[in-house]
Design a protein around this nucleic acid. Sequence first.
DNA 1: ATAGGGTTAG
Length: 646
Amino acid sequence: MVLLSKPSKNIGGVFEWNSAIRECVKQNCSHKALLLFRQMKQNGLEADNFTFPLLAKASANLCSLSSSQIIHSNVLKSPFWSDLYVQTAMLDMYVKCQQLTDACLLFDRIPVRDVASWNVMVLAFAQSGFLDKVLGLFRDMRFDGILPDTVTVVGLTRASLDSKNLALVKSVHAFGIRIGIDGDVSMANTWISAYAKCEDLSSAMAVFNGVEIGVRTVVSWNSLIAGYGSLEKFINALSFYKWMLCDGYRPDTSTIVSLLSSCIQPDKLFQGALIHCHGIKLGCDSDIFVVNALISMYSRCSDILSSRFLFDGMTDRTCVSWTAMISGYAERGDLDEALRLFHAMEVAGVKPDLVTVLSLVSGCGLTGALELGKWIHQYAFSNGLRDNIVVCNALIDMHAKCGNIIGARELFNVLPVRTVVSWTTMITGCALNGEYKEALDLFSLMVEFGLKPNHLTFLAILQACTHAGFLEKGLELFHMMREVYNINPGVDHYSCITDLLGRKGRLKEAVELVESMPVKPDAGIWSALLSACKIHRNVEMGEYACGRLFELEPDLEGAVPFVEMANIYASERRWDEAAAVRRAMKINKVKKFPGQSLVRVNGKPHVFTVEDRGHPDSLLLYATLDSLSLQSKEEEYWPYLEDFVT
DNA sequence: ATAGGGTTAG
């Protein structure tokens, strides 16, 4: 710990006490700083205009409202209550303690305000995302005749970033140039990361290149690397990292964290581990930010055991550490372990926050764990998350994915505010549960409310049309998407329309669409076409689709195209060709992966396949199934014959 | 001045 040299009672003047307090604040022992203040008073010494700002800082670090109020009342009793420096420190203290109202009251009472006091307010509202308030303050500040400085412009940039408002970032940038602060490195660094966050990497690059090589700091590089990493341009992020090393810069924790958090795919495990090694070499591998980033990197790269190893080795785990680990298990469907950690977290005295709840909710949706999902729903609502739109959206999604469309609808209907995500989630849920008409109605209603559907909304509604076989409606929406909303369809949108045309027997149009689309067709689109060819017994188109499919996936891993093609030949009684496909399968040793199903019984997941006799109770299970099919025969229910062809 | 866990799709 820190060397807390207590000033001796004999020689201790205010100056010595101030130095001791400053040392405590610097070493992150803010509670000791406040204790020293009490001792100082007990020794009959009064705080001065240097003591109060230090105490304010300590109180802000602790986010302690009660100590803030004590310090404030001491200030009011002192002769320094009118000192501008002290007042700004008080202001900052209230802001850091989340007491915006108190800060405003204080701010209004300060007779003469300088840049620093205005900046505290601008930054406070910028951090809370009140763009209107920030712009209003900025205007009033100008009316007051105060010249903004870099801190003000940083606040403005941060506020415009919250809504990813690129136009506003640009105009703030222009303003910065006008008042001549664009030569400042920290200002340039802020703009690099701001442009990156608004997904305008060329502007970010332009600002970066505008900073002279000798003036660039690690933060300049970090901002660029974080920008490319968060836009899933890992290769670029990595090459900038290499470039940074070549230029002789020493990466810091932030560099490592940004790089780690851009390794989000299983095939990035090697690179992720490499960055881990760099972290070790730099000596920052035990930094809590780095460890948290490592946990989520390993889990997202499908190496959950390494995540767990790091997690178990931690001495201090924050809410983020627990959540990273929990969401790792939840994402891969291991809800038992996720829940065990959730309870362990509460035992350890760490309070879960909304992100923790969100990971569990999405895990329930992924595995269809409705009972657990309902429990977490209850938990979220009794812990003050009832009004949180993000949590509610996740809950709607969970209910719908678990087949509880009624629960999803109930929640959706009572939402006080519905975002585009809420509507999209509900439409997806309806499509998933066969409520195609409702999906279409919701879509019209959403548009009537004046909300702008995005590419995912269109995907949801097009999928509903595809499943329902609404060809005209689907085509209409597809056109609306491009003409009215200016959204470029992705491969998934094209896939829906191809599937829809194919199913309706309009194979020629389907193929023409695929051939003319501006995005590269994927395997899914050709598979959809192939199965349409099977339904409509079209050998030529089938062969064509099959050929394209093999071009895309020459490894011949899956059996599906073979089986489909053999069936198409068989349906046209072209037995020789059907047999040839079967032979080709044998020669190429094509593996047949049976489709798996998952069902939860008493909270325990059971995975099974067609004709699965591996379960200990399989005899009983199949007996039950037989009686069920007997029953359905009696009730004259006949499943589609098509389902049994393959 | 930069940085860690997350809602709709997959």
